[in-house]
Nucleic acid binder design. Structure first.
Lengths: 340, 340
DNA sequence: TTGTAAGCGTTATCAG
DNA sequence: CTGATAACGCTTACAA
């Protein structure tokens, strides 16, 4: 493939090769690739032909050595196993690509032996060395200050996480206030008054949702004391729901911090023979919620929009501070009316 | 931070800066970082001190410009939303890190408007330009030949996918023959004779599993004609199971190509009021299978081992061809005995 | 418009 | 063990 006929068969063709074959200087070749219309049509054609014939493609790494690459942004995902983040990342990549940028994604954490994940500083550093013009951070990354340091002058946009105090970074996230209001409104309209919440543990997102729950309950003049600690896992949701259901005045509806915990809640409800008489709701509207065996009413944060907006914010040069994306409620069978 | 006291405050420190401060030449600094024990202790100390004081860290991109980086391998994942792949990737990264290598992960495909995903050639090319010594490809990537071309001389190991014909690449994958034999053995031991399979569509993994099912049935002298086409989705599993269950002699047990399709199968079984009398099994033992509402017997392919072995194969210089990782069976409530 | 030359930060070569 | 000097492939003033 990379044979210019002079015997240099296996080496990957460089700009010099193209220049030689086209009978021009290397810098003209460079120019032809960066600003094609700044070069005369016939030369341009010859250069492109030569490049084509040689199978030449500019080396992006060599490019990055020179300075900020405006056509390239990095994407750092906090947890590659989180399906919510995966949706955000995919949407961001599509939007970047539509804007003519390349988005290189990598995982920010090294899943270590301790349950507490550690920042993969090496990977982040390498991404930073590529001198991207911007970085999209998806989810809550362990040592954000280190990330900021490693990225140099790149603009940073945080998606699907609460803003970092060290700021400078715009944030695009789902509006959990609205999300939980949607849930509480819905349950209240079904007649529920004793509504509980399972969550609050495991990070700022969880505590934010718990607070949003309390606020939404307050708007309805309802008692927001039925809150049991749970993180995002099924087991924790199960335990917390059990605690709530065993209280003197148990809730008739339980809102969970996410879908997985909601499934734990459902199990606790089933265990007590209360299936069909206690409403359950989740959050994130993952494909879990849509399963036939689950049929969970859930808040859809619109992750695709979050990812897309994050990319747009990065590409536009403005800093909108915090962008809140409006969620919608996806009603399914799990949110039964009171007394059903 | 990067202030050497001479007024060069904001530029990131380079080897030259370190050399100056330590009073040595740049190449010695380079040496100090690549082979520390080839440099005299006192100079080494001074260099390291200077580097520390300046906050210097070698630029990995500049390094990559020079040639193959033995301390760096790329990881290409076919589908960032697939939880199976995520497990493999994480295990590979941990193993690489333990071997002193950095693993930079990125997604191979750009989720486009058509359902048929396209190779993200730009991202792959950039990864290739970083000149990794090796590449781990997780899952089935669209245009593998393009990938091979972009990676130059890097050794390639494929994980969790069937070997590519263009070979050269070692493969580490779960042994689906064994997996389906485990399933069929298990069901047969529960008394089932009329065992069906739902799958076969959606790629080589699916067709391989269908063939493995037929082979395992053959070993038991059982009729392997109860196969209905399904891909990896819940909806397809539902449809295919319906077809099977509505036949003249319906299966008393249904094996599915994966967990999600198995959940679809379960829904079809439930719809016909057959819950508890038709056994269902999945594959991959994702967290779906473990859900309380699901309790699905499933084959655990041991993705952590697959990822780890892939990294090991890459680091050791041998080419073992195809490495098959032995799966185990995780029995749960869904595989009910015959006539239960 | 085109070509020349000097970088970008590191590693490799090859003299001392 | 040390230190110039030349790559690596591209970009970017600066000339012509």
């Amino acid at each position: 493939m990379a044979d210019d006929g002079t015997g240099t068969a296996l080496r990957r063709p460089t700009m010099r090769d193209v220049a030689e074959r086209a009978g021009v200087s290397k810098s003209l070749v460079s120019l032809a690739f960066s600003s094609p219309d700044a070069v005369s049509p016939q030369r341009l054609a010859r250069i492109l032909d030569a490049a084509e014939a040689l199978g030449f493609r500019p080396n992006r790494v060599a490019r990055s050595l020179n300075g900020l690459r405006d056509d390239f942004v990095g994407i750092l995902v906090a947890d590659s196993r989180n399906p919510v983040f995966a949706e955000v990342v995919d949407a961001a990549r599509v939007a970047l690509s539509a804007g003519g940028r390349l988005g290189l994604m990598t995982s920010a954490v090294l899943p270590g032996s301790p349950s507490r994940p550690e920042l993969d500083l090496e990977a982040v550093a390498m991404l930073g060395d590529l001198q991207p013009s911007g970085l999209i951070v998806v989810g809550s990354v362990p040592s954000m200050d280190r990330v900021v340091e490693a990225m140099g002058p790149a603009r940073i946009v945080i998606a699907s996480a609460r803003p970092e105090r060290l700021a400078g970074a715009a944030t695009v996230r789902g509006d959990d206030e609205v999300g939980l209001r949607l849930v509480v409104d819905h349950l209240a309209s079904l007649g529920h008054r004793r509504i509980g919440h399972v969550g609050g543990a495991g990070g700022r997102v969880a505590s934010g949702r718990a607070a949003a729950f309390a606020a939404a309950m307050g708007e309805h003049g309802l008692d927001a004391s039925r809150i049991a600690e749970s993180d995002f896992s099924e087991a924790a949701g199960f335990r917390a729901a059990g605690e709530l259901l065993d209280r003197a005045e148990p809730p008739t509806a339980i809102t969970a911090v996410n879908d997985l915990a909601a499934i734990g809640v459902t199990a606790a409800v089933r265990q007590r023979g209360l299936t069909g008489s206690v409403a359950v709701t989740g959050y994130d509207n993952t494909y879990l919620a849509a399963l036939g065996a689950v049929e969970l009413t859930s808040v859809d944060p619109d992750n695709a929009t979050i990812g897309r907006r994050a990319a747009e914010v990065l590409l536009s040069d403005e800093d909108p501070g915090e962008v809140l994306v409006a969620p919608t409620l996806r009603v399914r069978a799990s949110s039964v009316p009171l007394g059903a």
